[in-house]
Every structure is written in C-alpha cells, then in structure tokens.
Write a protein that binds this DNA or RNA. Sequence first.
DNA 1: TGTTAGCACTCATCCGCTTCGAGTGCTAAC
DNA 2: GTTAGCACTCGAAGCGGATGAGTGCTAACA
Lengths: 345, 345
Amino acid sequence: MSDNKSLLDIRKMRILQAIVDDYIMTAAPVGSRTVSKRSDMGLSPATIRNEMSDLTELGFLEQPHTSAGRIPSEKAYRLYVNHLMDSAKLTDDEAEYIKRHLDTRVHEVGEVIRQTAKVLSDMTNYTSMVLVPQLSSMKVRRVTLIPVSEGSAMAVVVTNTGVTKNAMIRIPESLSPDDLEKISKLITAKLDGHRLSDAIESVLPTIRAEIGEQADVVCGMIEDIERSMSEADVEVVGASNILDYPEYSDAAKARSFLTEVETGNYLQKVLTDSSDVEMCVRIGTENDNPDMQDCSVVTVTYKAGGKNIGSMGVIGPTRMDYSKVVAVLKYMSNSLSDILSKLLK
Amino acid sequence: MSDNKSLLDIRKMRILQAIVDDYIMTAAPVGSRTVSKRSDMGLSPATIRNEMSDLTELGFLEQPHTSAGRIPSEKAYRLYVNHLMDSAKLTDDEAEYIKRHLDTRVHEVGEVIRQTAKVLSDMTNYTSMVLVPQLSSMKVRRVTLIPVSEGSAMAVVVTNTGVTKNAMIRIPESLSPDDLEKISKLITAKLDGHRLSDAIESVLPTIRAEIGEQADVVCGMIEDIERSMSEADVEVVGASNILDYPEYSDAAKARSFLTEVETGNYLQKVLTDSSDVEMCVRIGTENDNPDMQDCSVVTVTYKAGGKNIGSMGVIGPTRMDYSKVVAVLKYMSNSLSDILSKLLK
DNA sequence: TGTTAGCACTCATCCGCTTCGAGTGCTAAC
DNA sequence: GTTAGCACTCGAAGCGGATGAGTGCTAACA
C-alpha cells in the first residue's frame, strides 16, 4: 500500500502524475510524446517510453492495445490521490459561487441540505449526495404525537440541535387525542436529553417500572419511533451528469449506474459507513457494489457544534478530477458545518 | 380533429393500425410487405403500398428516406389513441402482480403512493409519476405547531381524509411553547372543516375580528402554512428506463430527458394541470416543454370517497405502448382509489 | 550508465468503394 | 380495383488501403 510510493523514484512519480492529469482531462490514452511535451522535465519521448514501460510492468499503467498510449490503472489513481495530486485550492470565483448559492438566510435544515447537494453537483458536474443529519447522534428535546386517523398518528421528533423528523406510527384505536397529548408529554419528559438510540436500553425499563398499566403501549410506540427515525435520508442531485462522460456512452452501462443511483441503497450505505471518516475516497473496485465498480466515490463529513452529524459526497467516473472534487468537498464541508452550527443554535 | 377519422375509410384505418402496432413493437420503419403479412386482410404489398402512399400524403405516415418503410406521425398516434387501439385488458398475471405488490396492509399514504409509482414503472417499463394527494382539495381537521428552535416551528396539518403534510415556518422569537399550543388550538378550531385554500378569504377576517392583539401573528402563520401546503409533491420512479429505448440511445437526448425528469417541474405541472381530467394523453409536441417533445405522457386521476384527489401518469417515447399503458393506468387508478378510500376512512 | 535518435512494427481509425437488400413507385396486365 | 413485374433509391454492412499515433528495440552518444 504505502510501499507504492517507495517503489517509484521521483521521476517516475512525476511522469505518472502527468499521465493521470492528462487522462483525467481528455479520457484518451496518453502517449510518450504528450508526456514529454506536457511535463517540463526536458526528457525525450524515448526516455519517457522506457519509464512508461516500467510503470506498466509495476501495474500503474495499462495499454488498451499495442499502438495506443497508456491509461492509468486503479493503483495509479490510488497513488495519485494519496501522494501525487496537488491539492488544488478553489479559485476566488468558485468560492464566490458557493457563497452566493448557499443562502445562509434559509432557516430550514432540509432546504440547506438540498442547496448543498445542488451546488456540489453544479460545481463538479458529477453526481452529488448529501446525508440529511441523522437523529441517532443527537439528543431528543421533544416528541409530539398527532392524531391522524383511527389507529394511526404522526410522531414528530425534535432534537436539541433543532433537527426534526417525522413518521407515521400505528396506535391502539382506543386512544383519544387527549391520551395522545398526555403520552407525548410523558415521552418527551422521559426522553428529553437522551439519544433515541439509547432510549430503548436506558429509558424503557424506567417507564415500565413507573407506569404499570399502559407501559406496553407507550414502549411499543417508542420502539416504533426509534425504528422509523433510524432510517437515513439522502439527497441526490445530478445523476444525469454521468451521461456527459464518454465512459458512460454505452447505454447499458449508463443504465445500471442510474438505476443504482435511483434506488440509492448503495449511496446511503457509503454515506453512513463513512460518516465518521473525515475524508474517504473509494476508487473503482474498492466499491463493493458491482454496478459501481467503474466509478469513484469521494465523501467528507460535516459537523455542527464540533461534532460529526452527517456526510456528503460526489460520484463520478474513476477518471474524475479528484483534486477539484476534494477541494470542493472540503470547502463545502466547512461551509455547511458553519451554516448548520449557526442554524442549529 | 374528429375529421381525421372520417377522412379515412376502414381499410386505411386498419392498415394504419397495423403499422402503428408494428412500429410500437420494433421501433423500425414498417414496409408494405410486413403490413401485408401481419394484417390478415389478404392484400398484396402493392395494394398496401398505394394505401400507404395516400396515408403519407394525408400526413399520417412519414418516410425517413425513399427506400425505408414508413413510420407513424404524431397525427397517426393521435388517431390511434382516439380510435384505433384495441383497449387491452390486463392479463390475469398482470392483475395478480399489481394486487400482490400494492400491499393494502400499509397504513401510510406516502408509502402507498411510492408503491404505486414503483408498480407503475415496473409494469410498463417506462417512467412513472404519482402526485401525492393534495391538501388544497381537502378539509382541515387539525393544525399542530411544534416548537423547533428560536424563531421556527414545524406546522403539521391533518385533513379530514387523514392526509398529512408538514412544513417549517418562521415564528416570532417571543412565542413560548405554551403560546404555540394555544395558537395551534385556536387555528384548529377556526380552520376545522374548511379548505386551507379558502381559509385566507373566509377565516382570516373572522380571526382578525375576534382576537385583536396577536391577530397579525396568527394570520401570518396561516398564510405561511397555506403557502407551504399548496406545493405539490410528486413521486417519480424509473427515470432510467428511458435508456432501454433506441430513440434515446443518443446521450445528449437521454440527458435532457433525464435532467427534466430530475427537476420534476414539468411533470408536476402536467399532473396538476390534468388533475381534473379522468384520462389525458399528450403526444410529442403536444407537450409544451421542448425537452419533452419526443415523449408522450399519459395521465389518469385517482379518487378517494368519490372525489378526485390526485393524478398519476407514465412518460415514455412517443412510440409507447399506449394500449398497455392506458390499461395499466386505468387499473391502477381503480386500485389506488380503493386503497385510499379505505385508508382515509 | 543513462539518454536519445532512428527505425521497423502494430493497430485503431478513417475514407472510399462495392455489394446487398429492403423498400418504393410506376406501369401494364388481370 | 388489384396485383405482378421491374427499375430505381439509398442506408447498412463489408472490404482494403492509407494514415498516423504510438510502441519497443537497437545502436550511438555524452
């Protein structure tokens, strides 16, 4: 893994970097001549060729056929991401663009998340995804049950950070609106300050102990609520951007990508799995979903009040502009964290 | 419009029907030989050719080039939809499939709508869309305001049919949770039995008259709520199905279709515009959105308690299997109406 | 010993050519 | 009114040579 770097002398690394840079831009196999001209190393194509031959043998480059140039392997992208790419800063224009489009006057979390996803997709021209802040990590401040019809109610949970989520739950038909109001107050009193995920273990026994008769009903509701709330919501934008890239000009390939994105299962999995890693890059077959194995996924986390509360990411072809994507994501992570920190008091 | 029919004798109509049927299946220009064989009219290709020549002159057929077959024009699809197609019944298997997948035990409206969209898309292999039942047509039963953070609250509206919707609204920072509870009860009392859309005109003045001091605050909230609630929600499924059809093998074309579907503006417009027409078919340029002018959109309404409360539809290439789409939509409209009528008491 | 010019070789792509065949439209005969 | 026959059109597919980007090897050079 980290051996990769030591296997290569500086010259090989610079050549590899030049090749990856070029391939990311053009999507066409890169020849020795191009590298010789582009990299200002003052080496002739012949020399470059020798080095490229070595790089191929080492598994960093691949040859579509004898007389084409070379294209980077996944191993090359991995090295590129870890050591080679110059971590680009955003231009002033880009930073300005983000500032302008992430409207800080918006006062609803969901709206901010949607804007973030939109900006992310617009700036990178790849598919973006943002995990809506997850309740499980926050403390409950209030639970409200609203009667909807015979046997069903809507449960609204508000957290200490002001994030809300709601779900329909089934209730015994015998409960009156007044009963629900009482139960709301009871549950709020009991859960206030606790994490929902902890509630099952720590709070339910107390309730059972304190109120004899209807304890089962109330506990059942809390379990229902906990179950509904632990489902992750993901905002996805720009799925169709993938059609701009020649590697997806094959309709079947585009289709399987888009279908996977539409269902969102894998994206959700990636985002929740990475929601405690500041930055994470999955390249090609590092994705365990077969339909995503010629994509790369880059994710970052975002915070509120110094604590990770969600993550977001970008999906594109393995030949994506990692440097730009990383720069945009880092910037956006900070912006979103700032906004949410203010918004969530 | 209805002249179209009278312009054509029965034989021409049958030939046209055979051509459209064939083209819908194959997406390839249809030649006289094929029609002669497929339609059991006992006519030679030469005769068919004469008729096809007439049909071309009348604007029902088009010729990609001299030596190809003919393809139906939009005018032909229109005639086909209005008069020609045999309104297929679903097979027992298909009806069975729908029954099995529209789980009537589900007790949440949103879930039923999502299932409906999924089934619609799976059965037709086109893109489906379902308008979530709109509050504006229903009567309010309860409005609940839940404090979320300084200055903002969540408003949850429950209607007489048990449909719910919620929105974040801004509130004066001075309001306490108790104030909100009082206001909730006040608003509920005032709006109960009224349509939200009527509330502005009929109820606001009463409120202003009755409670002097905080009337402005309350009325402002009601207006906020009314605004949020009147936004239509659409569930879209199967956008990537379009890539299965050769007319969208061009990446640019597929892209503009998918982008339009992703934003959903046009779909929402179509569904709301058609939400009082039992069935509506828009063929090609009958769509006023330029990106959708080689699609067709078929919509139907659905009811609860005998009253239209929403609509759903299917989007595909102009060469879509209208007969099947219409059959599926009609069946689904009935199923969904039944389910919702029970669900919404 | 590392670098480079030179050169033969490979192979996808392009272009022009031909062939093929599906389909038309017209005419003349039934 | 219908149909067989036939010349004609034109895209699609197949073929062959030219093109050129790119390689790998060798031999000479600093």
